[in-house]
Nucleic acid binder design. Structure first.
Length: 271
DNA sequence: CACGGATCCTGATGGC
DNA sequence: TGCCATCAGGATCCGT
């Protein structure tokens, strides 16, 4: 479910409240994608220092170690008012002096993993091969071009892979390619530097805009305050198969690439 | 080593 | 409170 904007919106919505909180207890539900990797008791008594983000991971810094939280396809983090009743899909409850932070994840593709430090093997196994942060200073055009020039896959799949640039998921890959006027099926190596420059800028702007709009709420995303996002209302192509392109009126098409749906305008987006 | 495909899991939706 | 197929915002692993 969540791509970079939704993860960042989630982070912004709970980071200040959780900061400084003391962990009082931890309650685990059904198994998530990976095991926690430590005795939950190790977390009890620790203070939450702050929350950072790396790609689609939330890094919850503790006095001693950190939690890597991934929301998978269907996860959401929120403060819960009714501390007593963990629901069917509540799989990680962090009871703290500042409230109960709860991970709800019906599909359980998400995970909460403890690591002693960010450089530990446990953390690096998850973070080590991630690409550059698209909204950070490290996202420079030269590197972007150099990495993509070597790829032969369609550009959409390279964006999704996350080893060139992180955080671009299925919605924003389609949206960024629309903004850049690039057909998702175009092979990376065929793209000129000028077109890659457009894409580089498009990735930044679409993600920035999505964060501003509170992310995309397609079926159930909400931030830690329970608020929906609104970016989906201004999506140019995602989820709009059969509808007219907002720019040229052509019918938006849907195709499948690597088991994922892709949307594009056949007129605005050139091969 | 880059790539394509299967895979983990549950729920919503639509056709029959 | 019908059944079945398909699809869903992610990412790893495995075979080629």
């Amino acid at each position: 479910m969540p791509e970079l904007p939704e993860v960042e919106v989630t982070r912004l919505s709970f980071a200040s409240r959780i900061a400084g909180a003391c962990i009082e207890s931890v309650v685990l539900g059904k198994p998530l994608r990976w095991p926690l990797g430590c005795d939950p008791q190790l977390l009890v008594g620790q203070q939450v220092v702050g929350v950072r983000r790396r790609g689609k991971y939330l890094l919850v810094d503790l006095q001693n170690g950190l939690l890597l939280v991934h929301l998978g396809m269907s996860g959401s983090l929120a403060f819960s008012e009714n501390a007593g009743s963990a629901g069917k899909h509540d799989h990680f409850d962090l009871h703290t002096s500042h409230g109960l932070l709860r991970l709800n994840d019906p599909r359980r593709f998400g995970a909460v993993v403890f690591a002693p430090t960010q450089n530990s093997p446990q953390a690096q196994k998850l973070l080590g091969k991630l690409g550059v942060e698209p909204l950070g200073d490290g996202f420079d055009l030269a590197t972007f071009c150099a990495l993509l020039k070597k790829r032969r896959v369609p550009i959409k799949q390279a964006l999704l892979a996350g080893d060139v640039v992180v955080g671009v998921g299925n919605i924003y890959a389609s949206e960024a390619l629309f903004l850049a006027g690039i057909r998702p099926t175009t092979r990376c190596a065929r793209l000129s530097r000028v077109r890659l420059a457009l894409l580089h800028q498009a990735v930044r702007s679409v993600l920035t805009r999505a964060v501003e709009k509170g992310g995309s709420t397609l079926r159930d995303f909400s931030n830690a305050q329970g608020e929906s996002g609104y970016f989906q209302l201004e999506a140019a192509v995602y989820g709009r198969a059969g509808q007219p392109c907002r720019v040229c009126g052509s019918v938006v098409r849907a195709i499948r690439q690597g088991q994922r749906s892709t949307f594009y305008c056949p007129t605005c987006q050139k091969p």
